[in-house]
Design a protein around this nucleic acid. Structure first.
Lengths: 236, 236
DNA sequence: TGCCCCGGATTGTTCAACAATCCGGGCAGC
DNA sequence: GCTGCCCGGATTGTTGAACAATCCGGGGCA
């Protein structure tokens, strides 16, 4: 996704910090609802409070972090409404993109197929984290069928936010496989240029995924009252 | 949209500054390509350079402002590719939203009709700036049919960016009226719940609008080499 | 004319400070 | 013993100054 050489420099400090924190949050190291102390984090990352604030504000704008005046920043905790909203967005965005697949350039369609195949491979070797990533790649590729950088970006943000909910998901080996199979079906339809059918299949897929997340969510993470403050060991 | 009492306080300084600059940029006071000097702006707005930077970074993330390392911030200058990308996004987003209009709550549909009607009124009294705003409201309402806060936000961003191109548009009294009429047609279809036809009509509308912007763009603004630095009189 | 170098100006980042605000704990009163 | 108030420490919001790094324009040199 960010195709630069990424030698860690050649990007402003706030950008680097934001990237770092984004990774930590989406990988679940910083628990949703957890408070992000400026003092502790700044010291742990070796940047000034000002720089850290800029980074946090960015993440805030992306929806991964929440800011309350005079109370500081904390990792966003998705509500049920948020999940519903996110899946509504996905149905519209991915659905519409899939529908137009016949007009998409072949490279974009192949990207969809590749991602689906990758998911199969990872599932075959029981790498469930890899499967998660492949699924993300797949849906990003579906959105990519629309051929718009801005929609790609929107999709990226939606998936990043949604990842906050995925942490509540347990038993990946039981939950994920059906979705991988369905991805293959969608991918084949996309490759064939069957837009309408691809959309229908995809929307059904998303409905089911939404249901799965919502149930796992109600059981586990829905309204955790408060998370611990996250601080020191952030630099890892 | 931001329904607060907006007493100017009760929002952090960077947010206020960002709002201010956003308004200035979208209203065309800061010309696209113009350099945004931190020193001058900060002094003019009466905030520290740090605060100003946070605000600019926000606008950067929204796409209204561009940042080059060690060269600072400048108002974004849209390229032809940008315009194409923006309209591609709009066709997908608004089109898909319109298509589902039958499932949208009545209030959302009425908002579409109201906005279209408002555009008519403003046109009747030759208030072309008002017509512009009404058109924006109309398309925002169309996106609102999807019923997702996040998609609303995406739409808002797209329209804000696109406004950068509208400044190149001259002769509003000759260009705008046909679009106002078309809006009415779309609105009626939406109200009737005729999703498919509404989408077709809307996509045709957007195609034409894109063409209009692109021609006005090639004539006037496409590749202005450089804009003047904008500084002092920003507080107005 | 074309190239190089230099000095001023701007940017990137940090640090220290201060007011405003929030939070938890102790105290008085019932 | 419980409830409500108050206070002090801690955190946040914002500022101003400082310094290195980088860019830009202009003068000198070949």
């Amino acid at each position: 996704m960010d195709g630069e050489a990424t030698g860690a420099v050649e990007a402003s400090a706030p950008d680097r910090v934001a990237r770092h924190l984004r990774a930590r949050i989406t990988e679940g190291r910083f628990p949703p609802g957890g408070h992000l102390s400026e003092g502790a984090l700044g010291q742990a990352l070796g940047v000034s409070r000002n720089t850290l604030r800029e980074a946090l504000r960015l993440l805030c704008h992306e929806g991964l972090v929440v800011h309350e005046l005079h109370r500081g920043f904390s990792v966003r905790e998705l509500t049920v409404d948020d999940v519903v909203d996110l899946y509504r967005s996905r149905r519209l965005l991915e659905g519409a993109a899939a529908r137009q697949c016949a007009e998409a350039p072949p490279a974009a369609r192949l990207a969809v197929v590749d991602a689906a195949r990758l998911g199969d491979d990872e599932a075959a070797r029981d790498d469930w984290e890899g499967v998660q990533t492949a699924i993300m790649r797949f849906h990003q590729a579906v959105a990519g069928l629309a051929g718009s950088r801005r929609l790609d970006e929107s999709m990226r943000q939606i998936l990043a936010e949604l990842r906050l909910a995925f942490h509540a998901l347990a038993d990946p080996d039981r939950v994920l496989p059906p979705f991988v199979d369905r991805n293959r079906v969608v991918a084949d339809l996309v490759l064939a240029g069957a837009g309408a059918r691809a959309e229908r299949e995809l929307v059904a897929y998303l409905d089911e995924a939404e249901r799965a997340v919502l149930t796992a969510f109600g059981r586990r993470g829905g309204t955790r009252p408060v998370g611990p403050t996250v601080g020191a060991d952030a630099a890892g």
